[in-house]
Computed example of a mutant assay.
Amino acid sequence: MGRDIVSLDDLTVNNIGVFKKINSVTLPTSYSEQWYKDSLNTDQIVKLAYYSELPVGAIKAKTINSAHKISTYENMQQQQINAKIVPNAVYVESFAVLEAYRGLGIGERLLKFLEEETKKKFIHEIVFHVHIDNTAAVEWYEKHGFAKSEEVLKDYYKDQGLSNPDAFILSKSI
């Protein structure tokens, strides 16, 4: 049996620069150095995706209690959840695959990993925001079982300098 062409690996201090680069060329948002530093914490769900040993994708998520409202992108980055509140959802903070490697099963592999980790934590919902203009991503997520909320989150990305700062909320029950 041959080796799979798509593989996942842990984030380390040695490859965090790759994670930064994938996000910077793929996503319309930017993340602080502290956000990347926090990615190394064991309470984060983080993986890098490789295609034929080339780093081409990444995912970062954390457990939250959905009673906490995430009204803006900046609020999401700064949100500190009270440890006494039991998490009931996994919030995807970053999910990216380099454009040239889309359609090769990399996103599906990252999503499968995320769903498995969500189940291991006895959590039954995955939630995230998608930029309103990213119709390809919304369609991909819907194809993979996510439901788009009818509500548009106005000005979610307002401090990111995007011409249209609104976002959709997508979720999936596991």
Rank of each mutant, 00 (worst) to 15 (best):
F19I: 00
S163C: 03
T63C: 14
I85C: 00
T26V: 03
Q160T: 07
V127D: 07
K158A: 14
V13D: 10
I45K: 12
A61W: 02
F122G: 04
L98N: 11
Q80P: 00
K120E: 12
Y141R: 06
I85F: 02
K172D: 00
F19C: 05
P165N: 06
D38F: 10
K62H: 11
F146M: 07
Y141W: 11
I22C: 06
Y73W: 12
D159I: 06
A83P: 10
E125V: 09
S32G: 05
L27A: 02
E150Q: 14
K143I: 03
H131Q: 13
G17N: 14
Y50N: 14
T42I: 10
T63R: 10
G105S: 11
A137Y: 07
A49M: 09
H124R: 14
E108M: 09
K62D: 05
S149M: 08
R3Y: 12
K143Q: 10
G103V: 08
V18P: 04
G57R: 07
I59W: 02
L40Q: 10
S71H: 11
F168E: 02
A167T: 02
Y36C: 06
T63E: 12
H131C: 07
G145Q: 05
R109F: 04
L8F: 02
A58R: 05
L170Q: 03
E116W: 00
S39R: 04
G103R: 12
W140K: 07
K69R: 13
K154I: 13
N82E: 10
H68E: 13
Y50K: 15
I64Q: 04
S30L: 00
E116R: 12
A137E: 06
V18T: 15
I174K: 05
D159W: 04
V90Y: 04
I70Y: 01
G161W: 01
I70G: 02
D4M: 13
S149Y: 07
F19W: 08
I169Q: 12
V56S: 09
E139D: 15
E150Y: 09
R102M: 05
Y51E: 09
N23I: 00
I45E: 10
K172F: 03
N41W: 07
H129Q: 14
A147L: 14
L40Y: 09
D159N: 15
G2C: 05
S39P: 04
I174F: 13
S32I: 03
I16Q: 07
Y36F: 15
M1F: 08
G105E: 10
K69N: 09
A58N: 13
V90M: 01
S171T: 13
S30V: 00
K21W: 06
Q78V: 00
L8M: 03
W35Y: 15
V6T: 13
K120Q: 13
T26I: 00
G103I: 08
K143E: 06
V46A: 06
F113L: 08
I5G: 00
V25Y: 02
I64P: 02
Q78G: 06
